[in-house]
């Protein structure tokens, strides 16, 4: 391989020198090049050029990446794991179903405890209300934690159709907002 490379370089340099000599002395060294041959050489050059251009397009430009040392290291924000679970909970894969269950359990626990403290219910009654969907007026919030389906008006159903968010993550959002409102004494 190396020999071939050396030979090629030698020929290349020779050709370059011959070309330069030809330019300077303005002679053809007896080569009679007709129009067709020269055109063929031109086409060959274009083909080669396109090959190089193609190599360029496919080239992997490599460079070293740098970190961000001027920024502080990052610590998580409480609740980020839950947001991730909610995002993963769409669909019917094993993992989404598991995440959906985990999300539901965590929401149910928080809701029941809040009802016990802020509505002065005993835990059984609070659980019953959550399961029956009676703990809130918001059907979207009630529905996700309820055992059966919760009655909702035509308007709510219609609104649901035009929502960008999935029904599940909308429900999660509504529950969390509702429980927060109860805790802060706004409901």
């Amino acid at each position: 391989m190396r020999v071939l490379r050396g030979v090629t370089i030698a020929f290349g340099v020779l050709a370059a020198l011959a070309g330069l000599a030809s330019v300077v002395t303005n002679s053809t060294f007896g080569f009679a090049l007709d129009y067709l041959f020269v055109t063929l050489v031109g086409l060959f050059a274009i083909a080669q050029g396109l090959r190089y251009a193609g190599a360029r397009r496919g080239a992997d430009l490599e460079f070293t990446e740098t970190g961000d040392p001027e920024l502080r290291y990052e610590v998580p924000t409480p609740g980020g794991d839950f947001d991730e679970q909610v995002a993963n909970a769409e669909g019917w894969s094993f993992r989404s179903v598991r995440d959906r269950d985990a999300v539901r359990d965590r929401l149910r626990e928080a809701t029941v405890e809040t009802l016990v403290v802020h509505r002065s219910l005993d835990p059984e009654e609070a659980t019953r209300r959550v399961n029956a969907g009676e703990w809130t007026d918001d059907p979207d919030a009630a529905d996700l934690l309820a055992d059966g389906t919760v009655e909702r008006g035509a308007r709510d159903v219609l609104r649901g159709l035009f929502r960008r968010e999935s029904r599940h993550s909308h429900g999660v959002r509504r529950i969390v907002a509702e429980v927060d409102a109860i805790q802060r004494g706004e409901r």
């Binding site: 055109t39 031109g42 050059a45 083909a47 050029g49 190089y52 251009a53 360029r56």
Partner: peptide, 21 residues
């Protein structure tokens, strides 16, 4: 190897080919 100048000969070849053809 950053491969920055990969393809530079293409300029020469294409220009020369076009010049001739």
């Amino acid at each position: 190897d950053t491969d920055r100048w990969v393809g530079a000969p293409a300029v020469t070849l294409l220009f020369a080919g076009l010049a001739i053809v």
